[in-house]
């Protein structure tokens, strides 16, 4: 167990923890931030995606020690000061079905739009392909990303 300090949703936090603990469980069990979801535990499905230093990452496979000194943004932090434009469009386009994967989808979409404000279908395929949705909301996700690109 060691002390690790990182920035979580713009707040500096220190945890005393096994450094190998995946970030996902630190977020969920230690900070109660359950918006970041467990689904595959192997970095395959992207449901656990958060931003680390602004880049989308799979929190289920990243040991907390690799996050020391870095900035982590979760779905809760994304909308902390009112809904992010991507979240607003997600709502307007009625993307969610069960909703479980949507925080991960949104975190990846936000990251995509930050680096590529007008993504093509191919760009969306590449950026979003690894984020799985068993309900099958992909078509609406694609539409929502295009809508954000047009509006913002």
């Amino acid at each position: 167990m060691i002390d690790l300090t990182f920035t979580l949703n713009n707040h500096r936090e220190t945890v005393n923890i096994d450094p190998e603990t995946p970030l996902l469980w630190v977020l969920r069990d230690h900070f109660g931030l359950t918006g970041t979801k467990y689904s595959c535990g192997m970095g395959i499905c992207g449901n656990c995606s958060v931003h680390i230093n602004g880049k989308p990452q799979r929190s289920c496979t990243i040991p907390i020690k690799h996050v020391a000194g870095k900035e982590v943004l979760t779905i809760e932090g994304l909308g902390a000061k009112g809904l992010h434009p991507v979240q607003k469009v997600w709502d307007a386009e009625a993307v969610s079905q069960c909703g479980y994967c949507q925080p991960g989808q949104i975190m990846n979409a936000v990251a995509l739009l930050k680096t590529n404000p007008r993504p093509s279908d191919a760009d969306i395929d590449e950026a979003m392909n690894g984020v799985l949705c068993r309900c099958g909301t992909y078509q609406r996700i694609r539409k929502a990303i295009h809508t954000v690109a047009e509006e913002v």
Binding site: D29, I75, G79, L83, D91, G99, Q102, I106
Partner: peptide, 27 residues
């Protein structure tokens, strides 16, 4: 009609079974 609980699914606030917590709970 848009989902009555739609916002809670996109801001991370909706608690699913995996997210459910009780005081003193173990896993």
């Amino acid at each position: 009609h848009n989902s009555i609980d739609g916002l809670s699914k996109i801001d991370g606030s909706l608690k699913y079974g995996y997210d459910f917590h009780l005081p003193g709970m173990l896993t």
